[in-house]
């Protein structure tokens, strides 16, 4: 198996006159945490959406595990092992935490054209879901309706749901957005535990978190990658300091 899990090849996407993704090329290596940083409006979310399949690129290719997935719909990409979290929390709000995770487990357990047995009593769905919640220290919230949770807890559950689809590559769009300091710390712990076990493409504004987690960093400015390198290299890169990190 190649050591590159995701190859983004000359991807481009414009909204009217705005070049939100401008010939982006990134290789994400297997089991690395690759961070994408950049100022507001740089095109980070737009890039993630093209990778997960929600947005169609204008040109370029996305190669995942050697397969060209550029034209596949969201749900097919998910079954190949690509999972995303959303910058703005996106969960099934009217259902319980356990339901949300169990639905992700169920999605990996064959088709769901099963009309008779009550799904909420199926051990083969509930047990793995509970296991994931326990790993994330969320098991005490299992029966809480998502809409009753705090913002930080919902962010944690986004990750748990993404993990429940058994992905090879996680696309995380600002998992720490809007979190308090202690919540951020626990999120960093969660993601650190995945380092080396899962490939992660991490979009994040919180620089402490990025430098704590990333094996490599790409810097996106006005839709273009201006630098890719180790955290050390990025910290020392003059262009990056100038364009983005200058105020650090």
């Amino acid at each position: 198996m190649s050591d590159v899990i995701l190859q983004i090849d000359n991807l481009a996407k414009s909204f009217g006159g705005v070049r939100a993704t401008d010939n982006v090329c990134i290789d994400v290596k297997r089991n690395e945490t690759h961070a994408i940083i950049g100022p507001n409006g740089a095109g980070k979310t737009t890039l993630i959406s093209q990778l997960s399949g929600g947005l169609k690129p204008d040109s370029g290719r996305i190669i995942f595990n050697g397969q060209n997935i550029t034209k596949l719909p969201v749900q097919k990409r998910c079954h190949l092992g690509l999972a995303r979290s959303f910058q703005i929390t996106s969960l099934v709000m009217s259902m319980s935490v356990l339901d949300n995770v169990a639905l992700a487990v169920q999605a990996q357990d064959g088709h769901s054209f099963k009309f008779w047995k009550p799904a909420r009593t199926l051990e083969r769905l509930r047990a793995p879901a509970m296991e994931i919640l326990r790993d994330a220290h969320l098991d005490d919230k299992a029966d809480t309706i998502v809409s009753a949770l705090s913002h930080g807890e919902r962010r944690q559950i986004e990750i748990a749901v993404a993990l429940a689809t058994k992905p090879e590559l996680l696309l995380l769009d600002e998992p720490m957005a809007g979190m308090g300091p202690s919540e951020s710390v626990s999120m960093v712990e969660t993601l650190k535990a995945l380092n080396g076990k899962k490939s992660i493409l991490l979009v994040e504004h919180d620089m402490d978190a990025v430098f704590a987690l990333a094996n490599r960093i790409s810097v996106l400015v006005y839709g273009r990658i201006i630098a890719t390198g180790t955290p050390q290299e990025i910290r020392e890169n003059q262009d990056v300091r100038h364009a983005y990190l200058g105020d650090m």
């Binding site: 998910c78 999605a107 769901s112």
Partner: peptide, 8 residues
């Protein structure tokens, strides 16, 4: 959106 993202 969420249901599609987890594979449905």
């Amino acid at each position: 959106e969420r249901m599609a993202a987890i594979g449905y």
